[in-house]
Computed example of a mutant assay.
Amino acid sequence: MKTNHLLKSIFTGSLALVSVLTLSTTAFAAKTKIADVSQYQGNINWSKASKDLRMTIIRVKHGNPGDSDYRVDTKRDVNANGAYKYGTPFGQYDYAEFNSTSDAVSDARQFYALSNKHAKFYALDNEKRVGKGSEQSYVNAWYNTMRTLTKKPLVYYSYQNYVNVHKISYSKFNGSWIANYSAKPNVSTDLWQYTSSGSLSGVSGRVDLSRTVDNSTVTKWYTNTPKDTYFTSVSNGQQLRVTRNINRYQTANLTGKKGSVKYNSTVTAKSIARSTSGTYRIQLTDGSYITANKSYIQAK
Rank of each mutant, 00 (worst) to 15 (best):
residue 251 T to Y: 04
residue 29 A to W: 12
residue 215 N to H: 15
residue 199 S to P: 08
residue 211 R to E: 09
residue 153 P to C: 08
residue 164 N to K: 15
residue 24 S to R: 08
residue 81 N to D: 14
residue 64 N to S: 09
residue 16 A to K: 02
residue 195 T to G: 13
residue 1 M to C: 13
residue 237 G to T: 13
residue 185 P to F: 09
residue 42 G to T: 05
residue 137 S to V: 11
residue 104 A to I: 04
residue 24 S to Q: 09
residue 209 L to G: 08
residue 234 V to C: 07
residue 230 Y to K: 04
residue 83 A to S: 06
residue 42 G to F: 02
residue 33 K to F: 12
residue 294 K to I: 08
residue 156 Y to T: 04
residue 277 S to L: 15
residue 191 L to K: 13
residue 195 T to H: 11
residue 262 K to Y: 14
residue 13 G to R: 07
residue 146 M to W: 14
residue 110 Q to D: 04
residue 200 L to Y: 04
residue 117 K to D: 15
residue 103 D to W: 10
residue 129 R to C: 03
residue 181 Y to D: 06
residue 96 A to M: 04
residue 51 K to P: 02
residue 5 H to A: 15
residue 78 V to H: 04
residue 162 Y to C: 05
residue 91 G to C: 02
residue 56 T to Y: 02
residue 51 K to V: 14
residue 34 I to T: 02
residue 55 M to D: 01
residue 17 L to W: 03
residue 52 D to Q: 05
residue 180 N to C: 14
residue 145 T to L: 10
residue 100 S to T: 02
residue 43 N to V: 14
residue 167 K to W: 08
residue 245 N to E: 07
residue 19 S to Y: 06
residue 263 Y to W: 15
residue 31 K to M: 08
residue 24 S to P: 01
residue 87 G to W: 01
residue 108 A to G: 00
residue 135 E to L: 07
residue 221 W to G: 02
residue 94 D to F: 06
residue 243 T to H: 03
residue 189 T to H: 11
residue 87 G to E: 01
residue 253 N to D: 15
residue 276 T to S: 15
residue 79 N to A: 03
residue 180 N to Q: 15
residue 258 K to G: 10
residue 137 S to C: 13
residue 196 S to M: 10
residue 15 L to F: 10
residue 232 T to A: 03
residue 275 S to H: 07
residue 270 K to G: 04
residue 148 T to I: 06
residue 241 R to W: 11
residue 136 Q to A: 12
residue 280 Y to L: 01
residue 40 Y to G: 00
residue 216 S to V: 11
residue 146 M to V: 07
residue 97 E to T: 02
residue 133 G to H: 14
residue 82 G to F: 00
residue 103 D to C: 00
residue 122 Y to F: 10
residue 140 N to Y: 05
residue 90 F to W: 02
residue 249 Y to T: 05
residue 235 S to Y: 12
residue 219 T to P: 03
residue 151 K to F: 03
residue 250 Q to I: 03
residue 288 S to M: 04
residue 137 S to T: 14
residue 263 Y to P: 11
residue 279 T to L: 12
residue 101 T to I: 11
residue 211 R to K: 15
residue 72 V to L: 00
residue 214 D to Q: 12
